[in-house]
Design a protein around this nucleic acid. Structure first.
Lengths: 202, 202
DNA sequence: TGACGATGTATCGGCCCGATACATCGTCGC
DNA sequence: GCGACGATGTATCGGGCCGATACATCGTCA
């Protein structure tokens, strides 16, 4: 999963580890607090060995404020890496539908096609619906066996599930009718087809 | 964290691994799907070695339907284990406030005192508020740099944060005024002090 | 009698985290 | 000028937890 996230970010721009972590924190802020270095660096090494990314120690810097010879390693995605990214993004296993996996996939939704988006959205919905049904079962069948706090927790969880299902329904509806997620109330008119394959970092 | 959960469940009744897993699934259903055996059995062994629980292979069974000599191992909490449980439940590190940790603590709230409950509730609130502020920052400062899907994800996350903070506020208010979580609208009258130290499994 | 699913215990590889170590850069105060 | 300090940067290690897998028994139904 982290592999997908790294590949996705490097698709936008070459970066070194520290920068990657910060970028991950803002883009995936909802999903994970911040990726740990204990995971990041070994993963980068693994991706490099696999040939998905290229490693390049650098003396010079890109941005003006820094002009020294700090030993930084800039990573750049390779052609094989882009292929790998597309595969990972499109294929959906069970882990695609849990919180972290879904979040990462969703983050890069603008990089894939509508069919894939719908597939993942519906898979996620099914997952949450299952959780919701489980909670309803527990509340109706064993509710009186649980103490007040546990009960309250279940209820709060159930509420969150229902809310997320509604959110997903809306996204699915939008997707089917060819709309990009409506920001708030804008975007009344739908773009013709794919909502601009990808163009962040303007 | 899993240690706390196991100790908590064994406090209610002796159990063997398989049963423990099912019980965990229903009580902590909101938090985690189901605990993996690859974690459960090693943890049980660890707890046994530490002296928190006692291990007893059994031939006879408790419940009527089963009357054979299946090699099951029934675990029972020890006096030291109960002490350990109380310590773990009351002490609050940073991991107490993330989703899993908070969920487990909350599940056993009826087993601890109001001061501890308030401390944990407020710590959790602070944690969520931090996440909320982070999301607001991103949305206001870098919102236009992100594509529509990422934006939508952040917004959904922000909404969930705000909702959870409100939920926590309510719980904290109730706790301060000496009420157990109000089931829905019942419980208009507050019990005198601690809401019955613990009595599930009636 | 044999297939099948639920029950039950156990291990292994792998992902990811937190703690930790170490080094350099820019900035600010003294 | 110079030292302290926080941000920047790379890296390793132990440990928790997961998914896959293996193996065995029980009850049930064909």
């Amino acid at each position: 999963m982290l592999e997908l996230a790294i590949l996705g970010l490097l698709q936008e721009a070459p970066m070194h580890g520290y920068e990657l972590r910060k970028e991950l924190a803002t883009k995936l802020g909802t999903i994970r607090a911040a990726i740990s270095y204990g995971t990041l660096y070994p993963t980068l090494k693994r991706l490099h060995c696999a040939g998905w990314i290229s490693e390049q120690a650098t003396e010079t810097d890109i941005v003006p404020p820094m002009t020294s010879k700090r030993g930084r390693i800039v990573y750049k995605i390779t052609a094989e890496g882009k292929e790998r990214f597309a595969d990972l993004l499109a294929q959906a296993g069970p882990e695609t539908y849990d919180d972290a996996g879904f979040g990462v996939h969703f983050t890069f939704f603008s990089r894939t096609d509508r069919a894939t988006r719908l597939r993942i959205l519906e898979g996620r919905r099914r997952r949450i619906e299952e959780r919701r049904e489980g909670l309803r079962d527990v509340l109706s069948r064993a509710g009186d066996r649980l103490d007040a706090y546990t009960l309250e927790l279940q209820r709060h969880g159930l509420d969150a599930c229902e809310r997320e299902v509604r959110w997903l329904e809306e996204l699915i509806t939008n997707e089917r009718s060819g709309r990009t997620p409506s920001s708030a109330a804008d975007q009344a008119v739908a773009p013709p087809e794919e909502p601009a394959p990808h163009q962040d970092r303007p």
